[in-house]
Design a protein around this nucleic acid. Structure first.
Length: 268
DNA sequence: TGGACAAGTAACGTGTGTTA
DNA sequence: TAACACACGTTACTTGTCCA
């Protein structure tokens, strides 16, 4: 496994791995390359790696957002010294694959690194394309296709769709979506997310995807993977046409601020 | 069951890019 | 440079859900 270690704190500004990561690397016979956050894009471009590890004092979505905005689909694990549920949710929503404390046992850290790499390189996922049944998301061209028919999404609509697909299986609340879309900009009203999700739904509905997202009342949205399964592979419930103002789900999800963290991850 | 609140949606205003 | 198209955000209204 090839690992690129990115320093995003004063203590590890040049990317030198912390002791926990160093031990995991030595146990796992991992080839290591280090970089500071200034040279991260160049390093990712010139030194293909299997996974990126960002070391931060507190989870900060800006660096993850920058990597994703430059269309690097490399899996990202964040090692952090101090974290809150909200800050972990923000980096996961921005596109990180995992966020772990620096106190984690090196053995578990190594296992997580391997699991993420295995998951991302698995069936249905390539570095540029994610496929879920009839849905194909091309990250290199920022295109979304249903049955090979392109869905004309705007920039923000694509970003929400991409976020939903990459975090499929996880519930995403509106603030997390806004944090991912507007990492370093002033965020609009959360109602904006409702409107953009509604527009995506309308466009997908025209292509026969009736309930692309499940709504959890008061909590957020989740990708409805079954809606994208080919006809005949879906449950009866999903074959029904939803009303125009569909409330796909009203089942309350366990309350809590960090609703994206701690749930099973998405890539199968 | 009804009020409060959240979510869905259409309509509209504004900003920006494109084109003649 | 004006006209136009489009994306985006806001507003207002409707609908659905929760809870006392």
């Amino acid at each position: 496994m090839r690992l690129i270690c990115i320093g995003d704190s004063q203590k590890n500004a040049d990317g030198r791995p912390c002791s926990t990561l160093s031990e995991a690397i030595s146990k796992g016979h991992i080839s290591l390359r280090i970089t500071g956050k200034e040279g991260v894009l160049s390093a990712l471009r010139h030194f293909p790696s299997d996974i990126a590890v960002i070391q931060q004092i507190q989870p900060n979505p800006m660096l993850v957002q920058m990597i994703r905005n430059n269309r690097f689909s490399i899996p990202i694990l964040i090692i952090t010294r101090e974290s809150t549920a909200e800050s972990v949710a923000a980096v996961l929503a921005a596109g990180a694959d995992d966020c772990v404390p620096i106190t984690m046992d090196p053995v578990e850290l190594l296992a997580r690194l391997r699991a993420i790499v295995r998951r991302v390189s698995g069936v249905g996922v390539t570095s540029q394309t994610i496929t879920i049944g009839r849905l194909m998301l091309r990250e290199d061209t920022r295109e979304v296709l249903v049955d090979d028919d392109m869905v004309p999404l705007t920039h923000n609509e694509y970003d929400i769709m991409s976020l939903m697909v990459r975090r499929r299986g996880n519930l995403l609340n509106k603030s997390a979506i806004l944090a991912a879309l507007y990492a370093d900009r002033e965020k609009p009203a959360s109602k904006t997310v409702d409107v953009m999700v509604c527009r995506i739904r309308q466009k997908l509905r025209k292509r026969g995807i009736q309930t692309p997202f499940k709504t959890s009342w008061g909590m957020g949205y989740r990708l409805n993977e079954e809606a994208f399964l080919p006809f005949g592979a879906r449950h009866e419930d999903d074959m029904e046409f939803a009303p125009s103002s569909a409330r796909e789900s009203s089942m309350p999800i366990t309350a809590g601020g960090n609703i994206t963290a701690g749930l099973p991850d998405q890539h199968q």
